Simulated scan of single mutants.
Amino acid sequence: MSLPRSNYDPRRVCLNPFPNVNLGKHRRTVGIYLAGALFALANWTFLDAAILSAHAHPPYDEPQIPPPVHVTFVDWIPGICSLLGMLVVNMIDKDRIRGDEGFGDSRAVWRARLFLFIGFALMAGGLAGSVTVLVLKYILGGYTEQYTYYGYANVSQNVAMMLSAVFLWIAQSASSEYDYNLTL
């Protein structure tokens, strides 16, 4: 063991501790606003690419040549999967996953954890799908940077949506300024 015995805690999972960020009494509000901003940025980025694709014009010197590629429904599927995953993850009661509140039914905790896994799997599948669309449709297609932006926007949408889900999960798990600790 590389840690001195005085610093060792048997409940510790990671070798390096996570940083302790203190945002004061408004940490929950900051987390929720940050998650909302990331969600808006994610969808704005992809909608920007979709609108650019819909209004793409042929070059002015060759008006008979149409734009080579457009954003189609295939490009929308990864974002839809990430959105569904985000909804599933953030609808779960956090106390059920921990097994708190004396639910009495051990199957309820198992079902909540399965539901959480399905939500994260949907988000991971959305991210993997967006990378696949980027590589197969835009990069291997040999399009210019103007058209590969559509694929990069799709990937950035899914990354930002996953980060938004994580920030919202952490913010909802934090105690608000109205929670009181009444232990004796």
Rank of each mutant, 00 (worst) to 15 (best):
A121Q: 06
A56I: 04
A49V: 00
R11L: 13
W110P: 01
T29L: 01
V69H: 10
M161P: 08
V89D: 07
I51R: 09
G126R: 02
A108P: 06
Q146R: 14
Y8L: 12
D100I: 00
V133S: 10
R113F: 08
A174S: 13
I77E: 00
H55K: 09
G79I: 03
S164F: 01
N22V: 02
G126S: 05
F18S: 15
R11E: 12
Y150A: 06
V155E: 05
A35Q: 03
R107H: 07
R96T: 00
L52R: 13
G99H: 05
V88N: 09
T72R: 00
M91I: 02
E101F: 10
D75W: 00
P67D: 06
G151Q: 07
A124N: 02
D75K: 00
T29A: 04
K137L: 06
Y8M: 08
Q172M: 11
L184V: 15
V30I: 15
P63Y: 02
L122N: 00
G129P: 05
H57W: 07
T183E: 15
S82M: 09
L182K: 04
P19T: 08
N20P: 02
I65C: 06
L83K: 00
S164G: 12
N22L: 11
R5D: 13
K137S: 12
S53A: 05
A40G: 00
R28Q: 11
G125S: 13
I80R: 01
D9S: 10
M91D: 07
V135R: 08
C14Y: 13
G79R: 03
H26W: 02
F18H: 15
N158M: 05
F18C: 14
I118H: 01
I97R: 13
G142N: 06
I51V: 14
T29F: 00
G24W: 06
G104C: 06
F120G: 05
R11Q: 12
Y180L: 15
L52M: 09
R11T: 11
R27D: 01
G85V: 00
N20D: 14
V89C: 15
V71W: 04
I97C: 08
A112V: 04
V155H: 01
V159A: 03
A174I: 04
Q64T: 14
L34P: 03
C81W: 11
A124W: 05
M1E: 10
R5A: 14
L41E: 07
R107E: 09
E62G: 06
A42E: 02
C14M: 14
L140G: 03
Y180D: 13
H55V: 07
L127R: 00
L41M: 15
S130N: 01
G151W: 04
N154H: 08
G104A: 04
H57T: 09
L136R: 14
S176K: 01
G119P: 07
G151E: 04
G129I: 01
E145H: 15
I139R: 14
G151T: 04
H26Q: 09
D9R: 08
A35N: 02
L184R: 14
C81S: 13
